[in-house]
Amino acid sequence: MKSITKQKSLEEIQQQLVGLDRVYIIGCGTCTTMTRTGGRDEVLEMKERLQGMDKIVTGWLVTPTACDEMTGAALVHANGAIANASCVVSMSCAMGVQRMAGYLDKPVLPALDTLFIGLESSPGDFHEICAQCGHCLLGYTAGICPVTACHKHLLNGPCGGTDSGRCEVDKDKDCAWTLIYKRLKQQGRLDVMRRYQPVKNSQVVPRPRIMRVD
């Protein structure tokens, strides 16, 4: 599972940096390195771009896993160069940004947008397959999640927009319910699809979601 990110436009990064001229850049050695949005190469590219905006880059670092608590130790290690900066530009996902912001008293600004938590189904091909809805229905849907894989997160079968197994909103996407139907049919379990699924509980864990494990 990877946190899937996309780089923000330079214009938006610049907007966040108004009044902040000295920048320290932090990338992440895990997800954003895999997705080539915040690894070493992208951090070095960002360094040049920020310098092109007349920013002073006081240093940079690629922390092994930005969302991990070990990031605290990495920030202590880089303390001098960070102290010289007026802010940190993070090239991790939003979890890394928040981890860093908790450790630092300077602004931590995201250079990336966090899109979804995805599984790499083949190299470079990331799919969101779980929306963490709080009540798993995979037992009724042949192991394919309609809450995530159906554009309208329908629970009782396909909408009328499906066409030849494709989703109406994007011909490159499969219709989740056609996949579910085919797999249930192959398993001889179409009766499961005929079962009515009631409206989902949207408040299984009301937001913000917290779990305490003792």
């Binding site: 079968g157 396909p158 009328g160 499906t162 066409d163 030849s164 056609t178 139907y181 699809m193 005929r194």
Partner: peptide, 12 residues
């Protein structure tokens, strides 16, 4: 619809 059977299940 293509395939039709899933639509018929929904119809029912």
């Amino acid at each position: 619809a293509d395939p039709l059977e899933p639509q018929l299940i929904k119809f029912e």
